[in-house]
Amino acid sequence: MKIDVNSDMGEGFGVYQLCDDDAMMNIVSSANIACGFHAGDPAIMTNMVRLAKARGVGIGGHPGFPDRQGFGRREIPFSDDEICQLVAYQVGALMGIAAAEGGRVAHVSFHAALGNVINRDEALALRVMSCLARLDRSFIIFCQSDTIIERAAIAAGLRSLTLFLADRAYQANGQLVPRGKPGAVINDEATLRARVRQFLQTSSVTTYEGENLPLRARSILVHSDTPGSVELATIIRSEIEASGNSVAPASDVLAQ
């Protein structure tokens, strides 16, 4: 079975760099590239596209709120129309850079607070997905399963690829444990290996409360801002391959 490994990338600005994107690009099969609002700039975006294209990695847009200081994790009260404009502006910028480099944007993965806001409002989610469909009907929307975003993507005629967030703890209701809580972010090798093996073998994860939670996912996400993210991504890929599965970009996973 083919499984995608994706990471949020290009989340720096100017000379500042959050993660070793060059090393990470050798491990992942899909790159969610920051589009200049919560992080990123034209030079970083161009470099990410060039790296992804050279290494056969799927290129994706990672739009967020215009909040560098808060790294896009703070909710900002934009109207629904303004949120659609923010998404179109960012994804459109990456589409232009990708086209100039002979590549194309294959997927969209929403960043932090922007994704949370869209995922709480069915009407807004459908407007955003309809906007993306007008940009490119072949877009793949990265999302968690059984969410408003997934349903809106399908309603708008877009494909979705559901995610397992290997480096984040889950609550029994399927929501992520808030980052401020102890144990919310997972960067311990043994724990991560056990979680990935459980997911691959049983399509489930053990929650923060110790319960078994079924998961429907075909892509594993590792956040680039998690400490040791390159090493964590390497562990995830090694567990996938050791289980007899293969790592492939989102479009190849959905083509199965």
Rank of each mutant, 00 (worst) to 15 (best):
G64T: 06
D80T: 07
P63G: 11
V57W: 03
Q69F: 12
G61D: 01
S79L: 08
D81T: 15
C84L: 12
G72R: 07
A52T: 00
L51R: 09
F78T: 08
F78K: 06
G92Y: 13
M45C: 08
Y89K: 13
V91R: 00
E75V: 15
G60N: 10
A54C: 01
A52K: 02
M45N: 05
I83L: 14
P66F: 06
G70T: 09
I76T: 10
G70H: 02
V91M: 04
L86N: 07
M48G: 00
R74L: 12
G58V: 01
L86H: 07
D80V: 03
E82S: 14
V87I: 14
R68S: 11
F78Y: 14
M45L: 08
Q69V: 15
R74P: 02
Q85V: 15
L86I: 12
A88C: 13
R68Q: 12
G61Q: 04
A93W: 03
F78N: 11
Q69Y: 09
V57N: 02
G61R: 00
E82H: 12
G61E: 03
E82L: 10
R68A: 11
R55C: 08
M48W: 00
I44H: 01
D81Y: 10
G70Y: 05
F78C: 12
H62Y: 06
R68K: 15
G72M: 10
M45T: 02
R74W: 07
P77H: 04
L86G: 03
D80R: 14
M48V: 01
M45F: 07
G70E: 11
M48P: 00
G70Q: 04
D81G: 11
Q90V: 04
G92T: 10
